[in-house]
Design a protein around this nucleic acid. Structure first.
Lengths: 189, 189
DNA sequence: TCACCAAACTAACAAGTGTTAGTTTAGTGT
DNA sequence: ACACTAAACTAACACTTGTTAGTTTGGTGA
């Protein structure tokens, strides 16, 4: 719980603006105005616009990688692992909805870190698919198209950042449970 | 099947670029280079960059509205209506994956047409939710949170544009069926 | 051959872009 | 009183942005 530095404030404000208009459409002058200062003053705290994007995206991507590694190493059933993935997304997204928007929509504007980001994402998706395949083999999961299953779950989870801010009445635990139910058991009676 | 005009070519090329980098990050010079001409030449065919975005997004949004109206007026069961919605998304997205990317990611950069777009989207979501609620009342659909159900389905469907281009082996009909199965019946055995 | 026209071109514009350099301000510990 | 420092400022830079004006090109029908 260390306190927020001025640099953190700038990054958080930037994340909020990036969520609204996207990285490319937000100028350093926009960001400065939102902070109540002049654009040049931002450079007392950060080195470049690109550095801000990197700070937002890479830290979140590494959180996902770390969470996924814990889940894979656990001894739980495949369905239970999928429920943990849902909870992972709900938790990370709840703590940083603005940053998740950048991760989803502005990752392609990463420069030096683009390859690293893509590597993390590919590994994450491969692990996700691995869990589903494992569940199919163990007959826990229907033997339909595993990629469609992953696609459906992952895109829903990736879009949580759009939805969580509107539903403050649901806490993370309840939302995770409801979502797991819908994603895993379906909606029909 | 009328043939493609030069203006159409520009709009389609723009949609492709917008998908890759987003509206704000694509310059008129980028677009011109992709067309093999100079930026100024674009203005022989279009009036502004904004007009291109409008042409891409609004036509698709109106397709969705029109499709949804047909579904609502049908006498089918709620589950069957949801299957039709899945098919609607698969069809529209298959025909214009690039345009769907702009609709999803760049709608906020619409200027004059922003309010109109938001109106269409709100109506669409209200109709979608109405079908789910109707299904809950008729005991076709589980009595869990209808908004979570809509969120889950709609975000999956909205992300199809990312996924369809990678899976050319699946035709629209098969993909629609598989996706309906996953979304409606779940994935567990 | 001539007029026409779609569609390209060159040249330029005013405004906005990220960023740098150097300076001022106000508060803190000695 | 003094030096130090975090954090703001003004002014400017080189470049990029969307767009306009006027011109050239090459093909088509009369």
């Amino acid at each position: 719980m260390k306190q927020e530095t001025r640099k953190d404030e700038i990054i958080n404000t930037a994340a909020k603006l990036f969520k609204e208009k996207g990285y490319s459409a937000v100028t350093m002058r926009d960001l400065a105005t939102a902070m109540g200062i002049k654009a040049a003053s931002l450079y007392n705290h950060i080195n470049s616009k690109q550095e801000i994007l990197k700070a937002i995206i890479i830290s979140i991507a590494e959180e996902f990688t770390s969470g996924m590694n814990s889940i894979i190493q656990s001894e739980a059933s495949s369905i239970s692992k999928l429920e943990s993935i849902v909870a992972l997304h709900v938790n990370i997204t709840s703590n940083n909805t603005n940053g998740m928007a950048s991760l989803n929509n502005d990752w392609m504007h990463l420069e030096d870190q683009l390859d690293y980001y893509l590597q993390l994402r590919n590994e994450y998706e491969a692990n996700f698919l691995g869990i589903i395949n494992e569940g199919v083999t163990a007959s826990e999961i229907k033997n339909s198209n595993p990629e469609i299953i992953m696609f459906s779950m992952l895109t829903t989870l990736r879009s949580l950042y759009l939805w969580i801010p509107k539903k403050e009445d649901l806490n993370a635990k309840n939302l995770g449970q409801s979502l797991s139910e819908v994603l895993i058991s379906g909606i029909n009676n």
